[in-house]
Simulated scan of single mutants.
Amino acid sequence: MRKSQIGQTLIIVLLLLVAITLIGSLAIRSSVLSLKVSTLSQAQQLLLQNSDAALFKVEDPDQLLKNMALNGMFGYIKGEDNVGKELVFCFKSGNANFFSLANASLISWNGSTIQNDGLGNTGFCKMESGFFTSGRGVVITQIAVKAMDAKDSVAFQHMQKGTDPESSKKDPAQMYTIYATSIFPTLSSSTLSDSDLKTAVNKCFNSRFNSIPTEKQSELDVDIAAQNGKINDPTTSAGDKAASEETKAKLELAKVTVSACLSNLGVPAHTQVANYALTQTLSKPTP
């Protein structure tokens, strides 16, 4: 009888140990999950704050006149030769004059491919020391400025009711869109090695548009369909099929925006878009 009681006690103790282990594991799992949620929430706040800080620099009244000049970021990108292009700057820590063409790069279309050698490559952000927005070295922010094509503007847009350009003595407003993309690379969920991730992130920044016009999207879709036709054509030689596959892959990549590219890598990112109307002054249009 005593042996039987000893055996029952052992079973009860083992059950208690299993229950305590399960409760402890659940508590640890819950704590880790809460920590991850808290960390991601703080990261999102930090990304938003850095994007805001970069846009505040754009709106700085002390810099506005210089930026409106022909060699300033607004004056340069609104030229007829630069319509549809994106002027890119990296918002670096301690750089008080980063909105300078000497620190800028230009993304443009060359047919159906992306060209990024305009003005050099100094404007593109990189996952390297010196390209972070602060001394903490955790967030990188890249700015892209794009002018609206005149043919896409709305008649009398941003004109005061009852006036016209002659009576108001104001030039027609020029619309600009500015993209502020911030990333938190240390929280990336990518399975790539550090060096491969760095290369991939740099490519997202220097080889992608922030926004692709609808007509360009349609053009890319037509070109992709043409390549699919060659690939599926039984009379196409193996060499030509391989060439068509390569061309198709490049066309597909051209449709990927900066934010989509970063998202595909699993890099926490936040893109803030601001629209501005430029006449003699800079203002944000009411949504």
Rank of each mutant, 00 (worst) to 15 (best):
I178T: 00
Q174P: 05
K255S: 05
S218F: 07
I224V: 04
S218T: 14
I23V: 14
T113A: 10
A254H: 02
F124T: 00
V256K: 02
N110M: 09
S30K: 07
L253W: 11
L16N: 14
N202F: 12
S153Q: 10
E59S: 10
P234K: 07
Q5T: 14
F131M: 15
R208V: 12
I23W: 06
N103Y: 08
K36N: 13
A53Y: 08
A43G: 06
K85M: 10
Y179I: 09
A53P: 08
P185Y: 07
G239R: 04
M148K: 13
R29F: 10
Q49E: 10
A243C: 07
K216N: 06
A173L: 02
S34A: 14
V88S: 01
N232E: 06
D196I: 15
F89G: 00
E215I: 12
K250W: 13
T186A: 08
T163N: 02
I224G: 00
N82S: 07
N264R: 15
D81M: 15
V258K: 01
T271C: 14
T286F: 08
L70I: 15
S93Q: 04
P185W: 05
N50P: 11
N97Q: 12
I12C: 06
A147Y: 01
L119H: 02
A249F: 11
S41R: 14
K250I: 03
L48P: 03
D52K: 15
A150V: 11
T247H: 05
Y276G: 08
R29I: 15
L87Y: 00
S263I: 08
D233R: 02
H270V: 15
W109F: 01
A260D: 12
A243F: 00
T279A: 05
F131R: 00
Q5K: 07
K250C: 04
N82L: 09
E166A: 15
E86N: 05
F209T: 05
L55Y: 04
I178C: 00
